Simulated assay, not measured.
Amino acid sequence: MGSRKTHMAYRLKEARKSIAIAKLNDVPTSPRKMRLVADTVRGVEVNRALDLLHFSKKQPSIRLEKLLRSAIANWEAKNPDQSKELDNGNVYVKTIMVNEGRTIKRIRPCPQGRAGRIRKRSNHVTVILDVKPTASEEK
């Protein structure tokens, strides 16, 4: 029984070698605004995703572009022998998740002596890159 568990662990380890992960925590942007930008690059080839983010007018795209460059560097560090995959356009954004981070609460004076709450939201972004499976691997 122990050998089967270790065999599965080795398979998971081998599968994880080709994927690269990058995280960005506590980005001072609301998660909704970040998700609008993240949706444009989900499932897109890496070089095209960099272009989309670079020429986007939305403010969160600046931070997301930097995070994607970090994920690419992580992928290159994990797969030094597969550098041609990046040039061929086989590396793509497998998943991109935007989760809600901590919310800073502030108080602002309102009419009639009331206090209005201001919620300054933040988010956490996770990017996972992978290599597109070729036609021979799918069969």
Rank of each mutant, 00 (worst) to 15 (best):
H124V: 03
R48S: 12
K105N: 06
R108M: 05
Q59N: 07
G101V: 00
T95M: 01
E45H: 01
I96G: 04
N79K: 03
T103Q: 14
T95Y: 01
V44R: 00
Q59T: 04
R48K: 13
V37L: 08
G116T: 14
N123T: 12
S122A: 06
H54A: 13
K94Q: 08
I96K: 09
S61Y: 09
N123P: 09
P80L: 07
K78S: 06
R48N: 08
N79D: 06
V37G: 02
I128N: 10
A71T: 00
L53S: 10
P109I: 15
E100M: 07
S83Y: 12
R117C: 12
Y92A: 01
V37S: 12
G101R: 00
G113K: 02
A73C: 02
N90F: 14
N47E: 10
V98K: 01
D39E: 05
N99T: 10
E100A: 04
R119K: 07
K84P: 01
H54G: 14
D130P: 01
D130Y: 01
N47V: 04
L64I: 11
V127D: 03
N123C: 13
R108I: 05
I128Q: 10
V91P: 04
I128E: 13
R48Q: 07
K84Y: 04
D87Y: 00
V46S: 11
K120V: 07
E100P: 01
P60I: 01
G113M: 06
Y92F: 07
I118T: 08
P60H: 02
S61G: 07
I104F: 10
S56L: 11
K58Y: 14
L53A: 03
L52R: 06
R117S: 04
Q112D: 14
H54N: 12
G101W: 00
S61L: 05
K58T: 10
L52G: 12
Q59P: 15
I128P: 08
K57M: 15
S70Y: 09
A38K: 00
G113F: 03
A77C: 15
A73H: 05
V125Q: 02
L68R: 05
L129K: 05
Q82N: 06
I128F: 13
S61A: 06
R102V: 15
G43D: 05
G43N: 03
R117L: 12
R119C: 09
I96V: 12
G113C: 02
I62L: 11
L53Y: 09
G43F: 00
S61F: 11
V41N: 10
H54P: 14
T40P: 03
A115L: 11
D87G: 02
E100D: 13
G116A: 14
D39K: 13
A77M: 14
R63S: 15
S61D: 12
H124D: 10
L67Y: 02
A49S: 12
H124M: 01
Y92V: 00
S56E: 09
V46Y: 09
A38P: 00
T126R: 04
L50C: 09
I118L: 08
V37F: 04
Y92P: 00
D130I: 00
E45R: 02
D81S: 11
N99Y: 03
